[in-house]
Design a protein around this nucleic acid. Structure first.
Lengths: 271, 271
DNA sequence: AAGTGGTCTAGACCACTTT
DNA sequence: AAGTGGTCTAGACCACTTC
């Protein structure tokens, strides 16, 4: 026991010498950085996120139990629990009663539809077929660089593809990826890969997408889109411009999709 | 103390006579209903939601403190806390440290943009000007009835309006509301009312919208939309079909909006 | 039986707001 | 000083899964 020494006093005088939050574990915000203090469970959450980011626990794997983590970080199980609660709410981990807590992965049916919101007007959502049109190395334009938080002229990988539901071409999609992160990405690799592209990024390139922001507009089909989606030029299409982020809010993908919404719609829940 | 009598045993034998969950308070799921049991904090959450729905605490008002609620429901503060945590996560209440917990209201800048996702490409989001075109009583068509979970031919209120940002007409909107809930709704009342329509519904008709589901498509402007939004016939527009719900997942509004996305876009965060 | 996450309690102290 | 929500702890027991 000895309730006065180990930890119970954590949020004392911010810069004072005593107690201190989780200083015993891994130097959360040890000594010399900013004077902003955060609750213990937020620090624990940051530490766990670091381990996720560093690959100490890989997608799909089991992470240590709450009891183990509590011992490792020298805090109570309740504090670890609150940290993991938030990570689970952000879909970074997945809790399963009786089994443990797992690192989320894009190789799960569960994750597939979190980032594919185009669903059929009738019937159940399902995965589309992908046909790669083009893969090439290029230089980031000013606009692409701005959205990907890079510099103009930096190396990017450019991908273009068509997605079809039940053999009906429905999505025409362009992607720009930072060249440094996706060095070995080839058309062959993309063509042979089955399943969501984020699964490939996660497994082969160690880049796990965890969050995205989309801007949606209605646009008129240009000649190219009209051909691939088999609609008249000028037909209305949904245009979704997405920027995806990995750990630390780092932008890792720009995607621009044109969606044919004759038999499908984009589904959103406002709450 | 007396740790054996008051409450500590809650999830015991489901239909057994002993202990029981929160039976001392308000008959959570007293005796004769379904055999499905839920955690105590979920029952407390349901009780609090009932009080919100019944109007015991009105939008904008302070609800009792956690300590008071714990006494009222004869559970620990931690259990009340977890219940309120979820209500806060669902935006039904708003916690403010040091002050208390308040019932959410649509009369807040905070709430305005939760259901208006059309934001300008440049500059900050702001509230549009509303111009009412039409208000009338009508009978629900089969489609309207299905979406509003009513019967074909039931009374509805039909509203049509144009919303303009900086004097630029940008949204053409139709609404269908259950006639029973909105008996006194007149064009005059709508025209003179400033601010979001959900604020009016909440204050004047006691119907608080808490959740919505939208389906989004790209469509071509018909003659009417073209005129009101000042675009050529056939121009691409976003079409958002929304069903809004109040407490108990009861549908209370069907709304169909056509959005001009030349200077604006629909903003979504996927996480 | 043992281990995991899930619930519940009780008590302490902290940060913020108001009186 | 008193009241509120916010954090942290410690311990108990439950539900679920695996051995």
């Amino acid at each position: 026991m000895n309730p006065a020494s180990s930890n119970p006093n954590n949020n004392g005088t911010p810069a004072g010498g005593s107690g201190g939050a989780g200083a015993g574990s891994a130097g959360v915000q040890g000594a010399g950085s900013s004077p902003t203090f955060s609750p213990l469970y937020q620090q624990i959450k940051a530490l766990i996120t670091q381990s996720l980011q560093s690959g100490e626990w890989k997608p799909g794997e089991l992470i240590p139990s709450e009891v183990e983590l509590a011992a490792r970080f020298k805090v109570s199980q309740g504090t670890v629990r609150k940290a993991i609660d938030e990570l689970a709410a952000e879909n970074l981990v997945l809790r399963r009663q009786g089994k443990g807590t797992f690192v989320s992965t894009h190789h799960e049916a569960r994750a597939h539809f979190r980032f594919l919101r185009l669903v059929p007007d009738e019937g159940l959502p399902h995965q589309p077929e992908s046909r790669i049109l083009e893969v090439k190395r290029a230089r980031a334009s000013a606009e692409v660089a701005r959205l990907l938080e890079m510099k103009s002229g930096d190396a990017v990988v450019y991908i273009r593809r068509v997605l079809a539901f039940d053999a009906v071409p429905t999505i025409l999609e362009e992607m720009w990826l930072p060249g440094l992160l996706f060095k070995g990405l080839t058309a062959e690799r993309l063509v042979e890969y089955k399943g969501p592209m984020y699964g490939l990024f996660e497994s082969e390139f160690g880049t796990r997408m965890i969050r995205a922001s989309e801007k949606i507009r209605a646009v008129a089909a240009d000649a190219g889109a009209a051909e691939y989606l088999r609609v008249p030029e000028g037909a209305p299409l949904l245009c979704a411009e997405r920027v995806s982020y990995t750990y630390g809010d780092k932008a890792v993908e720009l995607r621009r999709g044109l969606y044919l919404t004759a038999q499908h719609h984009y589904q959103i829940d406002l709450s």
